[in-house]
Simulated scan of single mutants.
Amino acid sequence: MLDPRSLYLRSMMLKREEVPSFRTYPFSLPAVHDFYSLSFQKPVTFIIGENGSGKSTLLEAMAIAWGFNPEGGTLNFSFETKSSHSDLYRYMRLAKGVVRPRDGFFFRAESYYNVATNIDQLDAEEGSGPHIRDSYGGKSLHEQSHGESFFATFMNRFGGRGLYLMDEPEAALSPLKQLSMLTRMHQLVTKQSQFVIATHSPILMTYPHAEIWLLDEEGMRQVALEETEHYIITRKMMNDREQMLDILLEEET
């Protein structure tokens, strides 16, 4: 397991003095507007927050600043389907560890289809030569269900000693597959890997000793799992389902 002093990504800082205006997107987002720096202390870090809080924007900037393609994939991917990423990465400074990772992947659920398409296109150009899909399990990602293709990448392409940045990896995974992903994450952490994950999944957030950073109107702060709405609401719904449904489905009188 990686020692905190040997993490591949040690910290990131917003070069606030270079930001043209905090009144324009993405700098107007509360999570960015009040952001100064973030230090990573654990091999697994979760970034959480409501939709629109800026967690995906922050993770995207981190990934591009590291050198990943904005739409995802390994450092070798350079395709562009649609230029929709923000300029935030231009104002981010990353502090890297002394040891460089041997592997890496930027996984983002919303553009994963584009990554799968690019792999098929590159394999078609190679003809009968070695195929990229071989490192993803040997089968086209488009010939699998959404969830199966996600999991094929986690199981086959992620090899260890890597930096893995992931944006909502649970999007197409069943609860059982999310539990399996916890197991896979732990296998990779024991192989000296580092994860930074933007997520809504209370299941993934249970990973032991992980750091959880919450983005909200007040900016960014570290929280415990039990303090997150994800945990509180899920627990309340499971333990007091009838009461919750009475409140949610109460007819107007």
Rank of each mutant, 00 (worst) to 15 (best):
E126T: 08
V115R: 09
S128I: 09
G97N: 11
E110F: 02
R93I: 01
G67S: 08
F68D: 08
V99H: 11
F79A: 02
G137Q: 08
Y113T: 08
S135T: 12
G73M: 08
L122D: 09
N69E: 04
M62A: 04
F158P: 00
H85W: 14
V99T: 13
Q144M: 15
S128F: 07
I132G: 05
A109E: 02
F154H: 05
T74C: 01
A116H: 08
A63Q: 04
H142G: 11
L94H: 05
A63W: 03
W66K: 13
N76L: 09
G162S: 05
S149M: 07
E60H: 15
N69P: 03
S83Y: 07
E148W: 05
D103E: 15
D87Y: 07
D120A: 12
H142W: 15
L122P: 00
L88A: 01
G137N: 10
D123K: 07
F158W: 15
R161K: 14
T74G: 09
W66D: 09
A65N: 14
R108S: 10
F106T: 00
V115K: 04
E125K: 10
S149F: 09
E80A: 12
G138W: 02
S145M: 11
T117E: 13
E80Q: 13
S111Q: 10
S111D: 07
Y113W: 09
H85V: 02
G104N: 03
A152Y: 00
A152N: 12
H142P: 04
M92R: 04
V99D: 14
N118M: 07
I119Q: 05
R100D: 12
N156G: 10
R108T: 15
T117R: 14
W66I: 08
H146D: 12
F158I: 00
F150W: 12
E71D: 02
A63M: 01
A116F: 11
E80H: 13
I64Y: 12
G127A: 06
P130S: 13
Q144G: 01
Q121D: 09
F151N: 03
R133I: 15
R161D: 12
A95V: 11
W66P: 03
T74F: 00
A63D: 00
G138R: 10
F105S: 06
G127N: 03
Y91D: 03
G147R: 06
R161T: 06
H85F: 13
P130V: 08
G73R: 03
I64M: 11
S145C: 00
D120P: 00
G159T: 11
F77D: 15
S149A: 15
G72P: 00
E143N: 13
L88C: 11
G129P: 00
F158Y: 14
D134S: 15
T74I: 00
M62H: 04
S145F: 04
S135N: 10
R90E: 13
K139I: 14
R90P: 04
A109L: 03
N76I: 01
S145Q: 02
E110W: 02
E71A: 02
R93C: 10
M155V: 11
E143D: 10
Q121G: 02
S83A: 10
G104V: 01
